[in-house]
């Protein structure tokens, strides 16, 4: 039983990362119609950012949790402004290929600079240790990751679905030309949206730093699973990607306990089943 709860917890944590990353992908896709292949690279750079801040400037976890996502959001916005923007109006596949090339170059550069081995990052002092829940031992940091990412996801949902800015955002997704006619600066919104999505990926990276080692390729394989999550959930809905993310993390955790051989493929199997039964995904709108 202990092992089952342990795997469930791990599943929830993976689910938290799936949710944060697929949420960022969904937000970017909604606004730019671009599948951000560089998402995994930004996730990786978030973790490296946390390590870098600690190593060079002595800035700890809590500082990194704010600084790294903001810094990388700026990098992302610069990328969007200078390069990604040039592809506006072309087939959406070009945007995906551009971000793929960007991710390749970034991951290569990090491998050259830091090697492929992992760098450890300490768990912040306030979150060390854990508590005994009676049926299992819960490390504080893991509880924090689940709780914090849940809050971030809900806040994002609230900002997009329930605020004025979010209404603009949804309007720009539906009909950018009309929104421009109302005098809203849609170009700026596109840039900010990309920055926000990238920031979410970087935030997930900082959260992951103390759990998994900081590695140049930590995002490369992970992002493919997130793509499967996105295909399953459909990118049409914010809540959809959050729920699917957590749910699939749990499914993966359960598989690790009951049939460990299939744990690395179970999400892809779910994707195949969903595509066979509901081609647009659980929460997806009709294909564009």
């Amino acid at each position: 039983m202990q092992a089952l709860y342990g795997q469930l917890l791990l599943g929830l944590i993976n689910g938290a990362f799936y949710a944060l990353l697929s949420l960022g992908l969904a937000v970017i896709f909604g606004m730019l119609n671009v599948v951000n292949f560089a998402h995994g690279a930004f996730y990786m750079m978030g973790a490296f950012g946390a390590w870098f801040l600690l190593d060079r400037f002595g800035i700890g976890y809590w500082g990194a949790l704010v600084l790294a996502p903001v810094a990388l959001a700026l990098v992302g916005m610069a990328f969007e402004r200078t390069l990604l923007r040039l592809l506006a109006g072309l087939d959406h596949l070009y945007g995906m290929l551009l971000t793929f090339g960007f991710a390749l170059a970034l991951q290569g550069l990090f491998q050259i600079s830091f090697g492929s081995a992992g760098i450890p990052y300490p768990v912040p002092e306030a979150l060390q240790g854990g508590r005994n829940l009676g049926f299992m031992f819960l490390p504080n940091y893991r509880a924090w990751v689940i709780l914090f990412s849940l809050i971030v996801c809900l806040l994002t949902w609230f900002a997009i679905e329930r605020t004025r800015l979010g209404a603009y955002l949804r309007a720009a997704t539906e009909n950018p030309a009309l929104l421009k006619a109302f005098g809203v600066n849609v170009r700026l919104m596109v840039t900010l949206t990309y920055g926000f999505g990238v920031g979410l990926a970087a935030l997930a990276g900082v959260l992951a730093a103390p759990i998994s080692q900081v590695r140049p390729l930590m995002g490369a394989d992970f992002i493919i699973v997130v793509f499967a999550v996105v295909v399953i959930g459909g990118m049409g809905s914010i809540m959809g990607s959050v729920v699917t993310g957590f749910l699939l993390g749990v499914v993966e955790g359960l598989t690790k306990y009951f049939y460990p051989e299939a744990s690395s493929t179970v999400i892809f199997v779910v994707m195949v089943l969903v595509l066979a039964l509901r081609p647009n995904g659980f929460f997806g709108k009709a294909a564009r």
Binding site: L98, G101, L104, A105, Q107, G108
Partner: peptide, 10 residues
């Protein structure tokens, strides 16, 4: 080479 691939891609 990977970096170069990425740049050529872009």
């Amino acid at each position: 080479v990977t970096v170069l691939h990425g740049i050529i891609f872009m």
